[in-house]
């Protein structure tokens, strides 16, 4: 890092401390042996992680979040892959409008989406169900799934597809044998990014979740509203650990900056 002067390095250090401080503090406090919020210095204990077992609502919320994230990311990709192929391969009228529509969940505040979904699902008679949550999450994570798939499909050498066709492959065979393997890394990282977005969403989900379908962020938020104690820090620390794992995986197999800046300018929320 020789190209940065000492002043720049001091600035950089302070900046990094600022960025990691709240995350480190949460994880640190989670290991307190005390019954109250404190920063352990000599004694570290797993007491509050073990205590999680006695709070089934957190465990249940965690399960809901996992299922919801996995399911909605898969469903989103089922819609996003053909859409990405359409946008990257074909010229048709209204193509730009279509891509703006598909990316619109990034622009619309999640409060607004939450309200719109609440109103809509209540009128449709499926308010508060897991199905409603899945549909809402599919929409919200769709742009992320789409963007990474789109970047992969656009970056792919089209003459490879033409080669397959010229050798006698039909459209489906070409997709299965040539296109899909080529864009698979984009699809996988799209899935991971979509999963994280779904797993973390609070603002929209809080309008739709009912006691049976509370996700982990919703449960944590409602818990914090009442009181902050070491239990919620151990929940947070677990969530952070899970996200970091996915994040490092994502970075390893695709490069985090590329994932987050994939085509379209603004990144996720």
């Amino acid at each position: 890092m020789s190209r940065n002067g000492p002043a720049a390095l001091v600035f950089h250090t302070l900046f990094v401390v600022f960025m990691v401080a709240p995350i480190v503090v949460v994880c640190w406090v989670a290991f307190t042996p005390e019954g109250f919020l404190s920063i352990p210095t000599t004694n570290f204990s797993l007491r509050w992680f073990k205590a999680l077992a006695n709070y089934p609502e957190f465990v249940h919320a965690f399960a809901v979040s996992l299922w919801l994230g996995a399911l909605s990311s898969c469903v989103a990709l089922l819609f996003a892959v053909p859409a990405a192929l359409a946008l990257s391969r074909y010229q048709f009228r209204g193509r730009d409008a279509l891509s703006a529509l598909f990316l619109s969940p990034l622009m619309i505040p999640h409060v607004v989406l939450g309200i719109a979904f609440l109103r809509f699902f209540t009128s449709a008679g499926i308010g508060g169900t897991f199905l409603a949550l899945v549909i809402a999450h599919v929409v919200v994570v769709f742009p992320f799934a789409l963007r990474l798939t789109l970047a992969a499909a656009t970056g792919m050498d089209r003459s490879v597809e033409m080669a397959a066709i010229s050798l006698g492959a039909d459209g489906w065979t070409m997709f299965r044998r040539v296109t899909l393997p080529a864009i698979l890394p984009g699809i996988v990282s799209g899935w991971m990014l979509a999963f994280i977005q779904s797993f973390d969403d609070l603002t929209m989900t809080i309008f739709l979740a009912t006691p049976g379908t509370e996700t982990l962020p919703v449960r944590m938020f409602l818990y914090i509203q009442d009181n902050i104690d070491p239990l919620v820090t151990s929940v947070s620390a677990s969530v952070i650990a899970i996200t970091m794992t996915v994040l490092i995986l994502l970075d390893r197999c695709y490069g985090l900056d590329r994932v987050l800046t994939a085509k379209g300018g603004d990144a996720g929320r």
Binding site: D157, S159, V160, M162, A163, A164, I165, S166, L167, G168, A169, D170, R177, V178, P181
Partner: peptide
């Protein structure tokens, strides 16, 4: 194109 039975070599090779 799939039915024409022509052999094509692309500039970028386009190997799978």
């Amino acid at each position: 194109p799939a039915k024409r039975g022509l052999g094509i070599v692309f500039q970028s090779y386009a190997l799978f």
